[in-house]
Design a protein around this nucleic acid. Structure first.
Lengths: 190, 190
DNA sequence: CGCAACATGTAAGCGGTTACATGATTAC
DNA sequence: GTAATCATGTAACCGCTTACATGTTGCG
């Protein structure tokens, strides 16, 4: 039993009812920095949860709006959630193409290196801004869990940004004076 | 074109020849903290690289040892590597069941919470120790790239450990005084 | 008129994990 | 003898990503 999209959906629903579309937004704002999920995962997950009666579902037809399906966690859903959360030893996996590329920084032209780092820095700043909004958003759940997790993300992102700005110069030290011998990449082929 | 196991294998081979078994070890020590790969990914990757002539392969039969296949990057392999590294905008993805669980900390018994956090802290300390060994290991490549990446890992891990130790107490504040109402999990079922 | 936001889904494909299968050598 | 290390691979499975498919409302 592991923590998959289904479990997290169940968890989010334990904090309040919502539609698939809703859940996606909550995923993005609150979980985006450490757990991603798209519609292609969320909708099937909700369907499965409904099938096993861990959530109930009712269709809402408002005029002037597309039809919605609001999901609500059931009692057995709450039990299952707690059981799952407690019976697992949760993982924490990083898959960083970014660091993989930087490992081979010496092979890359300085301009490309700059582009890559700037792009990543931009992404991190975006997430940081998101987390900051979250902090000042009273609507977002402010229990100990959410606060801890948000703070964790903030701390790690700041540390990473700081590290990058402090050490990025050293990366370029590798190829100073000699231009990369390779022709510029002609096309983003294959 | 993205940075997959194949590309990283090619990259590692650009720093020196090696067998699949070797590569796995280098993956673990140097890339373990941000990019995982098992035999089930590495061997097929090497086979594919050899098929497309990005690496060459020769079998080595030493007495008193199992047969080995030593792979070596080719010229076209080096070109392909640089092209791939430069033509991508590398991602950095975190998938943290750990943070997902902590987000719902209020639902979990204090003992379980403790176990989960201690386990994760242990893992992080292990990786930190590994990185420290790497730092004092002159055999490990000490170019700017490897140094940057190792330092990055170290910095983030220290920041994370520090954050956890500073804020873990606040997590338990949620359920003080009232024991969790649920029966202890009977079995790690399903 | 077109685009963004609201809203729900399906299906193919991909990459990686896990388990399986095998076998030699070395050290305890 | 038996466990650990060295050594190579295959195949099933699984979950997630991506692309596809469709339709409404409201705003500029």
């Amino acid at each position: 039993m592991s923590i998959d999209v289904k479990t997290v959906c169940l968890g989010i629903l334990s904090l309040g009812d919502g539609s698939g579309y809703d859940l996606k937004k909550r995923f993005e704002s609150t979980f985006g920095h450490f757990f991603q999920a798209g519609y292609g995962s969320i909708y099937p997950a909700l369907a499965q949860l409904a099938e096993t009666d861990l959530v109930s579902c009712c269709e809402v037809l408002e005029e002037g709006k597309p039809a919605k399906k609001i999901y609500r966690i059931t009692e057995s859903g709450r039990h299952e959630l707690v059981k799952t959360l407690e019976s697992t030893t949760p993982t924490h996996k990083i898959r960083s193409e970014f660091l993989a590329v930087l490992y081979f920084a010496e092979l890359i032209g300085p301009a490309q290196l700059d582009r890559i780092i700037n792009h990543r820095v931009g992404e991190m700043q975006d997430v940081l801004r998101l987390l900051d909004e979250l902090k000042h958003d009273s609507a977002a759940d402010q229990g100990p869990g959410p606060r801890f997790v948000r703070g964790f993300g903030e701390t790690i992102l700041r540390a990473a940004l700081d590290y990058i700005e402090t050490h990025r110069a050293e990366l370029c030290a590798g190829h100073e004076g000699h231009e990369p011998k390779l022709q510029p990449v002609s096309r983003t082929a294959t």
